[in-house]
Structure formats: structure tokens, C-alpha cells
């Protein structure tokens, strides 16, 4: 895109600046629209599984429900508890929301469509997602209220625990792809199984990694069945208890943005990202643009997330910690050894 702006007669730096700005808008605006629609989809899927109708009043099939909700919270009064720490209380939702948007910078939407094609893309995502915990912890502390504080403690323990095993899972992927760059990781998955399938998930050594990554990503985004941070039977609404109006909406948007990001990561790291699932040109699907494949995969994973939310009961907190530290951590560590052992034997020679 920089070249396009340069062809309009700008200097390189202005063209770069404008191209980056346009890229940010091109990602952030559809993402916000997507989050609004995905909230609607989540409610519809959940309702269908509970034999209800879900939102069906606002707009055709209730499609405009999220926008109506958005307008409602926008017009609400922002209530700031008098005993709260005002500055931090307002900064916390902004952190959550910003961090969610920042991580999308390195997601490859197509072979050429990446905002920041950096060498350490995967590390960048790990770094940014580790920032996400601050939005919750600061909210819990600044609210100056018991339930949000408990929720903040739960959230940080949960996110740190699962980040450890996610880190090991990602090490396996990086070892196989031989790069931290997300585009290189996608391209390493082309024709992975005898040149037929695109995706690390079809690899017997990496398939268990994908299952663990899917579960860990649910825990990392605090979705049901791991939504202990806002367990309404125990903590009212968790760290969001004291929030109202737009500050609350920012948490809501950030949460679903994170879920979409985790779905995108599932697609990019294990299911071949923007590549079609089969690497055979029998059906003319190499003509389908890569972004369509990526979006289809993201929607598929979001359906799995909704499905799990609608059917699986909430975990107990000690079960959550046990799963993270006693099951996923040793297992993923074992697979790091297994994958590097296999690669040492086959790819790099003994």
C-alpha cells in the first residue's frame, strides 16, 4: 500500500505513514463491526442450543440487536464509585480494549495483507496478550470493592497459568515452522501431510497441541467453562461489577475481540491460516481469496467456542488450576521434547 501512496507523488515517509494509518483503520473498523455481529451470533447460537429464540426484535432476525445495545450503553450515565481510584478506574477498560486491537497488527489476512510483517510476530502476540491481564487487575483494584478484587486475583492467576502452557504449545509450532513470523508459519503448513493437506493440525505430533491450545485459549479469554472471573453465582459480575455505560461496553468489546483473536490464532497456527484446507486443485478453490478462508476458519472456531459455552458447565477454581499446572504444563513440555526429538532425527540429521 505504501507504493500506491508513493505513486500519488508523496515522499516515502508520508506514504508509509498514510499506508500504516489506512491499514490500522482497515483492520480496526471491520473488527468492531465483526465483534458486534459475533455477539449477536453468540447469543443466537446459545439460544438455539437452549431451545430459545434469542434476539429477534431489533431489525430483521434481530440483526441490529448489538447496535441497539451499543447505543443504549453509549447514552447511559457513567457512574464512578466515589471510593474508587478515578484515573485508574477509567484507564483499566481502555487498556483491555487497546490491547485487544494491538494484537491484530501481526495477523496475516492474506499472503500480502499484514499490517506489521515482523520477524517476532508470535512473540509480539504473546507479549501483547500478557498485557491483557492489567485491564482486569487494575479494574479490580481501582474499584475498591471486594468482588472485583477477588475477580482480579482469579483473572491474573488464571491468565498467567495458561500463558505458560500456551508458550510451550507455541514453541512446538515454532520448532516445526522454523520461524516466529506468522506468515512464515502459515506458509510452512502448505502441503503438510504428503503435500495434500494444509495445516499443522493434521500432524499426529501437533494435533494434541491444537486440542490443548483450543482449551487454553478458552481459559485465556475467560470464556465459559472457564469464566470464573465473572462467575455470577459467586462474584456478581466479577471485575466489571462497578462499571457502567461505555466503560462496561469497552470490556464487552475487548472480551469478544480477544475471543476472535484466539480463533484467528487457532486458524493461523494450526489450520493453515489463509490457505485452503486441501492442497489439491481439483476444485477451483485456489481462486478463492485467502481472507475468505481465514474468515471461514475464524467463524468455525467461534462456533466451537459458542457451542462449548452453551453446553459445558463452569469449572471449579481448583479444577482450573489443576488442569493448567498439572495436566497441560507437563503434557506440553513433553511434546516440546517429542517434537524437537523428531525434528532432530528427520530434519536436522542425528
Amino acid at each position: 500500500m505504501t507504493a500506491f501512496f508513493q505513486s500519488l507523488g508523496m515522499t516515502y515517509e508520508w506514504a508509509w505513514f498514510l499506508a500504516t494509518f489506512a491499514g490500522i483503520l482497515l483492520i480496526a473498523l471491520p473488527l468492531m463491526l465483526g465483534v458486534a455481529m459475533i455477539i449477536y451470533a453468540d447469543r443466537k447460537i446459545w439460544a438455539a442450543m437452549a431451545l430459545r429464540r434469542g434476539p429477534n426484535v431489533v431489525g430483521p432476525f434481530g440483526l441490529l440487536q448489538s447496535f441497539a445495545d451499543g447505543l443504549k450503553v453509549f447514552l447511559q450515565e457513567t457512574i464512578i464509585p466515589s471510593a474508587s481510584n478515578k484515573g485508574l478506574f477509567l484507564i483499566a477498560p481502555i487498556i483491555t480494549f487497546t490491547v485487544t486491537l494491538m494484537a491484530w497488527a501481526v495477523i496475516p489476512f492474506n499472503s500480502g495483507a499484514i499490517l506489521a510483517d515482523i520477524n517476532v510476530g508470535l512473540l509480539y502476540i504473546l507479549a501483547i496478550s500478557s498485557l491483557g491481564v492489567y485491564g482486569t487487575v487494575i479494574a479490580g483494584w481501582a474499584s475498591n470493592s471486594k468482588y472485583p478484587f477477588f475477580s482480579a486475583m482469579r483473572a491474573s492467576a488464571q491468565m498467567i497459568s495458561y500463558e505458560v502452557s500456551i508458550g510451550f504449545i507455541l514453541v512446538c509450532v515454532v520448532l516445526w515452522a522454523d520461524s516466529f513470523n506468522l506468515k512464515a508459519i502459515v506458509e510452512a503448513q502448505e502441503g503438510h501431510v504428503f503435500g495434500l493437506l494444509n495445516g499443522f493440525v493434521f500432524n499426529p505430533l501437533l494435533f494434541p497441541m491444537w486440542v490443548m491450545f483450543l482449551i487454553s485459549s478458552m481459559a485465556e479469554t475467560q470464556r465459559a467453562p472457564f469464566d470464573l472471573t465473572e462467575a455470577e453465582s459467586e462474584l456478581v459480575a466479577g471485575y466489571q461489577t462497578e462499571y457502567s455505560s461505555m466503560a462496561f461496553a469497552l470490556y464487552w468489546l475487548g472480551e469478544y475481540g480477544n475471543v476472535l483473536l484466539m480463533c484467528a490464532l487457532n486458524a493461523v497456527l494450526f489450520w493453515g491460516g489463509y490457505l485452503p484446507p486441501l492442497n489439491v486443485d481439483l476444485i477451483p478453490w485456489f481462486d478463492v481469496p485467502g481472507i475468505v478462508w481465514l474468515l471461514l476458519k475464524i467463524l468455525f472456531f467461534f462456533f466451537i467456542f459458542s457451542w462449548v459455552k452453551a453446553t459445558v458447565p463452569r469449572y471449579r477454581y481448583d479444577q482450573l488450576m489443576r488442569l493448567g499446572w498439572k495436566v497441560f504444563l507437563p503434557l506440553s513440555l513433553f511434546f516440546v521434547f517429542a517434537v524437537s526429538f523428531y525434528l532432530m532425527l528427520t530434519r536436522y540429521g542425528a
Binding site: V120, L123, A127, S130
Partner: peptide
């Protein structure tokens, strides 16, 4: 030094500072 930068954020901001 992008690798060191990311490690700084992951280790210090993501774990130690929490």
C-alpha cells in the same frame, strides 16, 4: 533488537510486574 524487546515485555511486564 526486537527479540530482546519482546522478551522484556513478556518476562518483565507480563510476569514480574504482575
Amino acid at each position: 533488537a526486537e527479540f530482546i524487546a519482546m522478551l522484556l515485555v513478556i518476562v518483565y511486564v507480563g510476569a514480574v510486574a504482575v
